[in-house]
């Protein structure tokens, strides 16, 4: 499903973010990406989401090298991936419903289907009664759940999360992690970057550990 073959990423200031990464994640697997701050976790996820391009090597998603994907095809590729970020990326002048509906609207889905799927997604994250609220009035944990609902509303086969529990307390973090497990149980490949070792220490999923841009394990 996700395969890295000798992937490098360096920036213009000669900073080497990732060095010779090779690993693979099978379809339907749930995997944690851990490492200290600045180890390259976010960079790695950005390479998968094509927010950035790798400097060298191959990244295969469903056996297709995404490095060769032309710029105008990226939006269609991103519709296959659910993205959850620590800093939410919510539209604060739109309702919860509009925020969650956004991936369906850009994909040209019809009104009835949008309504049905948005309500289903909000139901999964226990926010069904808050469709008309603005994100501003929600708590941090609720905002993160809105982001998760938006990430899964398109029913993507891959879900990427970058520090999804970074701003949350322990209890809320466990709730969010349970949500990811639920999505994984229905076949979604989940790849989560986190530095919260306590949170994942008891969870029985695979780990990829980064150290200064190298694979530690």
């Amino acid at each position: 499903m996700i395969k890295f073959i000798n992937v490098y990423k360096h920036y213009h200031n000669n900073h080497q973010a990732l060095s010779g990464l090779s690993f693979h994640i099978d379809e339907g697997e749930m995997t944690f990406l851990t490492g200290h701050s600045g180890a390259g976790k976010s960079t790695l996820l950005k390479l998968i989401a094509l927010i950035e391009r790798s400097s060298h090597g191959q990244i295969l998603i469903n056996n297709r090298n995404i490095n060769g994907l032309p710029q105008n095809k990226i939006p269609y590729y991103r519709r296959q991936i659910g993205l959850v970020f620590q800093n939410h990326y919510l539209l604060f002048d739109r309702t919860v419903f509009d925020n969650v509906a956004l991936p369906l609207v850009v994909a040209g889905e019809n009104h009835r289907e949008i309504g049905r799927r948005v309500r289903a997604s909000l139901d999964k994250v226990s926010l069904l009664g808050k469709e008309r609220s603005l994100p501003m009035v929600l708590s941090c944990g609720e905002q993160q759940r809105v982001v998760i609902a938006r990430a899964v509303v398109n029913r993507p086969p891959i879900l990427l999360a970058d520090e999804p529990t970074g701003n949350l307390d322990c209890e809320l973090s466990n709730d969010i992690m349970k949500l990811f497990e639920q999505f994984n149980q229905v076949g979604v490949t989940v790849f989560i970057a986190t530095h919260n070792h306590d949170l994942i220490s008891t969870l029985p999923y695979g780990r990829i550990i980064l150290q200064h841009g190298h694979l530690a394990q």
Binding site: A49, I51, P75, R78, Y89, P103, V106
Partner: peptide, 16 residues
Amino acid sequence: QSEIKVIKLVGGTNNF
């Protein structure tokens, strides 16, 4: 800008 970034993240094309 921030709205445009979000739309791009969720797969919005330039035409959209």
